[in-house]
Structures are given as structure tokens and as C-alpha cells.
Design a binder for these strands. Structure first.
Length: 338
DNA sequence: CAAAGGGGGCAGTTACATCA
DNA sequence: CTGATGTAACTGCCCCCTTT
């Protein structure tokens, strides 16, 4: 049995201080327990997108006294973004998919007469949205009249907006100010909305990844526990054989070091601790008081450990090779310079 | 070099829309 | 009607960088 807990680097974070989102490569999940660690929200399918109207900015924007950059109404959206548009896929966020099928999106803004390019709208949906938008505008105006401190609106991004943001997120999980403003222009959103969407999207990705990591590590822990118990039984049996047999008949048991000096098993944590002969092994670095970081940084972390496994020859392939790499701390760490 | 200030990210939370 | 769920938006904090 080979165990390899390999958590790769995240493609997402740009800054070194941001905790990477690990990508698991669970090759240890044999015996039908392989984990498919595929994350990421897919973009809406073309069929779904054809079913909607392009949504524009809510007039509520005017009611929120904030630092958002103002953008001329009806300004043609930026068309030359580098992000892929509308990658076809079978799965889409169900919540957003509801928005336009109901013909209502609070983000849709018609005050500019739909002058912005790329805004196909059916007459019927336009009517309905127009009516609802008037209500929304009135409510926004009321809020403003009340000092703008009213209850915040729950805006739902259109499917097109979400799809485009998803595609952008696949390109880069963080935004430069220019990318933010370009996206906002393209989607007729406020830059703040784009920023918030990316923040929430990163949080969702991290949460999903954390759940996957936990599940994966749980399975690996269970597997290692079972393996450890099995090895302990084997060790006990071999010791019994040593006592009853003058010389080990098979497997080169004479290579087995004295149990009291070589092999210790922590009964509480069930971590094998190879003390002497296998002191150079990976497992000893992991379990013998060493930290996971030390194991990660070890040049041997990715290579098959030798001594512990080879102690027992080909009969004992189960002790290794494996590489246990603990997922990096999710909370961002202080920078190296500070 | 240190303090101040701004910008951006993240964790945690709230508020709202939607659905079963 | 109600609880669960998803998510947009907010708040507060921290870190990094630039400016003074």
C-alpha cells in the first residue's frame, strides 16, 4: 500500500502572505476510495444564458453613499477583456439561475434606456423588469429620503454576470484595480460589487477546499490507523516467533532489530516512532517529535523513504513509501520580512 | 528608520432571497 | 408559514506598501 498525501500549491493566491488553497493529490485512496478533488464553480451553459436578459446596474447605487467610482450611465461596456466568455458547462449556480428565469433582477437598470451595448432584452421581460425596477427605484428613493440608512437590498447577480465573474475568477482569483474596474464596466456593476464578489468567491473556494482537506485527512488517518494496528499485530507475531524459534526461517527476521531499542509505538496517538535504525526515514521525521513543516521542507519528503520500509524487505511494503504533507495553515502567516 | 495613512485581503457576521 | 440554505454585503482586523 502506498500512501501519498501530496498537497500542492494553490494557483489562486497571488500574494505570498495569503494562505494557498491546496490542491490535493490523493493517490493514497486506493481500494476504491479515491477522492475526486475537483473544485471550482462552472460557468453557465449557453442554453441557460440564452434564457436571460442582460442585467445592468440598479438604481439603488445612487442611494448608497459610498466611495465607489462613478461611471457614466450608458457607457459602452469594455469588450476587450482577456477573460474567457461563457465556458459551456453543465453545472451552474442554481441560485443565480433563478433570477432571470423569473424575469426579475434587481440589478437590471433601465433608467438609461438600455443604451449600453450587449444588453439583449425581450420586450416582455423588459416590461416586467421595468415595472419592478420602478418599484425598486422608488424604494431606493425612499431609502434615500430616509437618510439612506434603510435596510440594505439583497442584490442578485444575473447569470451572465455570475458566469463572467466565474470565468474571471478562473483566470485570477484576485483582482488588480484595473481588472476590477474593467469587470465592473463590462458587467455594469459597481467596482465594490465585483470586489465583494471575489472576496466571497475566495471564501467559498477556501471553505470547500477545507472541507475536502478535512475529509481527505480523515480518511488517511483512518487508513493509517488501521495500517498501524495491523503492523502492530505483525510485530507482535514476529516477536512471538523470535521467542519460540531459534532462528528466523523466513523473511530475514534476523534483520529485525531488537524491539526494545528500535521500534516504539506510541499507544496514545498510534504513531510509529522509529528511533534508531530508521532515524533517517521520513516517518521518523514526521512522528518523532518533528513537525509537519519539517517533513514538508525535507528534501526527502517527496521521495520514497528507504530505511524503515527496507528494514523488513519486500515482505513489508506497507510501512512506506508515503509522504504525509500537512496542509498549510489557512490563516495567512506573517511575512518573512516582519 | 519610524510613524502615519491608504489599499487590499480575510474571517466573521448580517441580511435578504429563495426553496422545500 | 417556517426553517434551511445560498449569497451579497458589511465590519473589523491585519498586513503590505508608500509617503513623510
Amino acid at each position: 500500500m502506498e500512501l501519498e498525501l501530496s498537497l500542492g500549491d494553490s494557483p489562486a493566491p497571488v500574494k505570498a502572505t495569503v494562505a494557498p488553497t491546496p490542491v490535493l493529490t490523493p493517490t493514497c485512496m486506493g481500494d476504491g476510495e479515491d477522492l475526486e478533488l475537483v473544485l471550482g464553480v462552472r460557468a453557465a451553459s449557453r442554453d441557460e444564458q440564452d434564457n436571460q436578459t442582460t442585467c445592468t446596474q440598479s438604481s439603488e447605487e445612487a442611494t448608497q453613499g459610498e466611495e465607489y467610482e462613478t461611471r457614466p450611465r450608458g457607457e459602452a461596456p469594455v469588450e476587450s477583456l482577456s477573460f474567457p466568455l461563457f465556458v459551456p458547462s453543465a453545472e451552474t449556480g442554481s441560485a443565480n439561475s433563478e433570477v432571470c428565469t423569473r424575469g426579475f433582477d434587481v440589478n437590471t437598470r433601465l433608467a438609461d434606456g438600455g443604451a449600453a451595448a450587449g444588453r439583449p432584452s425581450s420586450p416582455s421581460s423588459m416590461q416586467e423588469v421595468s415595472t419592478r425596477q420602478q418599484v425598486a427605484d422608488q424604494e431606493a428613493a425612499d431609502d434615500e429620503d430616509n437618510g439612506g440608512g434603510g435596510a440594505r437590498k439583497k442584490l442578485r447577480l444575473s447569470k451572465e454576470q455570475s458566469s463572467f465573474l466565474e470565468d474571471s475568477f478562473k483566470e485570477h482569483s484576485t483582482l488588480t484595480p484595473k481588472q476590477k474596474s474593467d469587470l465592473a464596466n463590462r458587467l455594469n456593476l459597481r467596482p465594490r460589487q465585483v470586489e465583494v464578489w471575489f472576496q466571497n468567491r475566495r471564501a467559498r473556494t477556501k471553505l470547500k477546499q477545507t472541507e475536502v482537506d478535512c475529509e481527505h485527512l480523515k480518511r488517511c488517518c483512518e487508513r493509517l490507523t488501521r495500517e498501524n494496528r495491523r503492523l502492530q499485530r505483525e510485530v507482535a507475531e514476529l516477536r512471538g516467533s523470535l521467542r519460540t524459534t531459534s532462528y528466523p526461517p523466513l523473511y530475514g527476521l534476523h534483520h529485525l532489530p531488537a524491539a526494545s531499542t528500535v521500534f516504539r509505538v506510541c499507544p496514545s496517538c498510534e504513531h510509529s516512532k522509529v528511533v534508531a535504525a530508521a532515524s533517517e526515514s521520513f516517518s521518523s521525521r514526521v512522528f518523532a517529535g518533528g513537525t509537519a513543516d519539517a517533513a514538508m521542507s525535507s528534501p526527502a519528503a517527496g521521495s520514497p523513504p528507504s530505511s524503515a520500509a527496507n528494514l523488513f524487505g519486500a515482505r513489508r511494503p506497507h510501512f512506506g513509501p508515503f509522504a504525509a504533507v500537512i496542509p498549510p495553515v489557512l490563516r495567512r502567516q506573517p511575512s518573512a520580512t516582519s
